[in-house]
Design a protein around this nucleic acid. Sequence first.
DNA 1: TTTAAAATTACAATCGATTGCGTAAAATAA
DNA 2: TTATTTTACGCAATCGATTGTAATTTTAAA
Lengths: 343, 343
Amino acid sequence: MKKVKRTTIYDIAAKLGITASSVSRALNNSNQVNEKTRELIMKTADELNYKRNTLASNLRKGQSKTIGIVVPRINQNFFSNVIAGIEEATYQKGYNLIICQSNELHDKEIQCVNTLINQHVDCIVISVSADGNDYQHLQNVIDHGIQLIQFDRVADELETLKVINDNEQASFEAVSHLIEGGYKRIGLLEGPQNLAIFKQRKLGYLRAFKAYNVPVIDELIVENAWTKELGAAGTRKLLNLPHPPDAIFASTSDFSALGVLEVASAMGIKVPAELGVLGYANESFSEITSPSITTIDQFSFYMGNTVANLFFQELENTDTKTKPKIISIKPELIIRASTSKNK
Amino acid sequence: MKKVKRTTIYDIAAKLGITASSVSRALNNSNQVNEKTRELIMKTADELNYKRNTLASNLRKGQSKTIGIVVPRINQNFFSNVIAGIEEATYQKGYNLIICQSNELHDKEIQCVNTLINQHVDCIVISVSADGNDYQHLQNVIDHGIQLIQFDRVADELETLKVINDNEQASFEAVSHLIEGGYKRIGLLEGPQNLAIFKQRKLGYLRAFKAYNVPVIDELIVENAWTKELGAAGTRKLLNLPHPPDAIFASTSDFSALGVLEVASAMGIKVPAELGVLGYANESFSEITSPSITTIDQFSFYMGNTVANLFFQELENTDTKTKPKIISIKPELIIRASTSKNK
DNA sequence: TTTAAAATTACAATCGATTGCGTAAAATAA
DNA sequence: TTATTTTACGCAATCGATTGTAATTTTAAA
């Protein structure tokens, strides 16, 4: 690739016999420059195919108009939707997105965050990885005066802006739906309890039992079943119990619920008649499985939007000290075939 | 958010009573600095929580170690996988990704590209939007000395690096599979023909007919059926013909194929016995529909990897003029239940 | 011990855009 | 016409890191 000399404001200035400051002012719509000169500058800039060097501009201005995003996986439906939501809201305000993925690895997450600090981003939006529970790198973000917004998977102990789902309530409603539907022995496939979201979902599950005065059966709770394979394994274990469950809440994801369906099908157990199945996240496939899976929609795109708006809101907020704001989005139970016992 | 003064190399230099140049060199592992001073500098940098200002560094060096990506939609499986593939390969070399989405709109695509040029990215990776066929903005990228790599949906007329799928061959093999499976009247749901990928898929379809000496029946070809809804509509039209097809190749996507399945189911037509169905892209849901959908895998993650490697390869290539290189990835036919007529 | 060579470090310019301050020129008021 | 206010533009410093060149110190050779 050959090196190309790009036109700068000096080139424009030289061509017109004026100073770069005037060019800069014209380009920034300052009213300190004569209308005629401005037009001339604009025309010349266009002729010379001038493009502002954002690096230089940002360096001088001490801001980058860039938002950094760190997610466990870019190519996971939930996250890519959140990103799309952020993108929609920030693009029109002239912000750029730098996206990193942590691959669920704590070390890579730290690396990502550091890179973003180096880049002088104006804000870092993060959903922490499952691995690790040391948050020094996030504290560091704050110390560098960079706005930090956590979403979905958040480190509770850090006082930052947060956008979360009300997992507890969603889980409560989901399990209530199962109980009201006539299911008696409801199993739970739970996720890593070091992540608050999974802890909350379990709490919702427990609260539903209490609300309906149904005793909790500990042997129906399976730890760490957050992939399709682990979900399937957990299901096999549950269904082979002397007293197997008549419903399973795959609280980790629809993928896990898919594992439940497959095992049930392999064992000749009918869903939803003999076994109710409930997932989480409303993945696109959940409505086309047979039977379709009752699940919980997290409004991921809207969540991204909310994150972006929160950032802009705080930007205008000139208070010396911003108090940590937490926005909770209420997920929605999507009732489908997999939990319709009585049909 | 309070303004924070970040430590610079000058702060480190001042504290140690040396010059910023030495600090810079130490930080960049230059061998022009004494081992003891280096250690001292490193220690102090750490103590002061120093983070390099990438903006300043890049401005000075005239490169940004950043790659810009423009895709129609971030939250589409294929694209987010390609991005993940690019990310994997570039991250370890210290590159950052700036991601934009064009939303399939030509104007927004132009805006995105211009933003990336402003950002002085080292490379722009793009899959063009369906809308529009003017590529001045891409020519502009080249004129600015920025490496341009097109993937999947490419503007043929522009001589750039390209990473594409061999759509024609994949399509040929897919249709051959149908013919060999005993299907006689194979319908085609085609995409917008201004995109080369869809044109190629149609060519593959036609070539298969020629290869097996089967006459092409024009009325079985439906234009512009590239969403689930349009696919369903096209299917309805096809199945209501006096002589309906006994197989449908949804060449645009699995979503379209899903539309086919639904219409067939609604009309009581059995898949695959009475109607073979073939999709494209190997979306995650395609293996869990009933019946599961025979489709074509595009190796999207690998494609992203390839794009990244191509970039690095060209980076080392010091030839004055790089010739346009085209890498074609051979997609793979994934045979599933929806095309097994004889079972 | 002297001198040449090598290793360190300092100095200063540079990347491109922005902006406070000062001044010349133009517009307005007296 | 002169005084005063606006308006428009120039000058020069600045953002933080990098790097060619010069100066200094250290090391090695004579």
